[in-house]
Amino acid sequence: MTPETILDAETKTLWLDMFRKLVRIRHFERSAFELYTAGKLPGFMHISIGQEATAVGACSALRPDDYMTSTHRGHGDTIAKGVSVEGAMAELFGRVTGVCRAKGGSMHIADFSQNVLGANGIVAAGAPIAVGAGLSAKKRGTDQVVLCFFGDGALASGPIHESMNCAALWKLPVIFLRQNNQYAESTPRTDYQGIPDVVEWAKGYGISAVRVDGNDVLAVYRAVKEAAARARRGEGPSFIESETYRWYGHNIGDPGTWRPKEEIQAWKAKDPIPRFRKVILENGAATDADLDAIEAEEEARLQAAIEAAEAAPKPKPGTALEDVYVDPDLGAQAIQGVRP
């Protein structure tokens, strides 16, 4: 983008929406981190701060009726695809107003009203589901596409490979997007992957593949937009390697300090949010004041969401037995136990 570019209204709206979502996710995860550390949120939590541009760029390139699968580090992905901060925050708190009614928690945020087919606690488990959704779109004759997020470490897992092969074989509208945040738990690439260039690897499946700067929201947007267009034309799956970084440890509790300090600093300097702010300003898409106002709005909305979540009722213990089966009678019969 050069400063002389004249932006049409549509692009301006898109950019401001993407900026808003970047900020929304950053604020959400900052707060989640603090609330968790303060002992207010149960369970395990994986934070994606630093990776927001990948989530937002990719999901902004989709239509609302497109599908998405995510991972254990799914706050950003799911919010970018349309999960509300209210529903997500209440879920982290384990309240009845949570998007999964307190059954799922941080690792299992799903919202079928937004075609978010689920975050996932099992590495690589989203990929076959994405293939199935792509198969379904094709069989039903829609032009919906499926965005399948997975981590760099997940690429070593069998299901990713089986899924890429099936998607290529059946020419399915699936976009495999690897969020390469450089580590799988504690393990760097050199310990889990024999060849450095996964783009060439993906091409071996007969899948069109590119690498993007995952901290450049517009680059991710363009790559996914192109992949989606190809998928809608019936030209099959794509693979996108999105290079980014998670600022924090694997999960909250791991300080992540086992990584080189300089590496963490270098990536923090590539923070996707100030970077996009600069692009917006240089292109005259908005003023600093406009962007500050967006930040303030998002922060206010988030604070309200946190207050609402904290104030919302916890589920009644007995509701643990709900939502297992659809069939009420057979379900009750199946769940019944003998504990006195």
Binding site: P42, G43, E91, G94, R95, C100, A102, K103, G104, G105, H108, K314, P315, P317, G318, T319, A320, L321, V324, A334, I335, Q336, G337, V338, R339, P340
Partner: peptide, 23 residues
């Protein structure tokens, strides 16, 4: 003979629900 085991449902996230389900 009495059995005390986890109830016949998947484990829920929220602590009160989880405690209800676990022995």
């Amino acid at each position: 003979i009495e059995r005390v085991c986890t109830r016949n449902v998947p484990l829920p996230f929220q602590p009160d629900l989880e405690n209800y389900v676990l022995p």
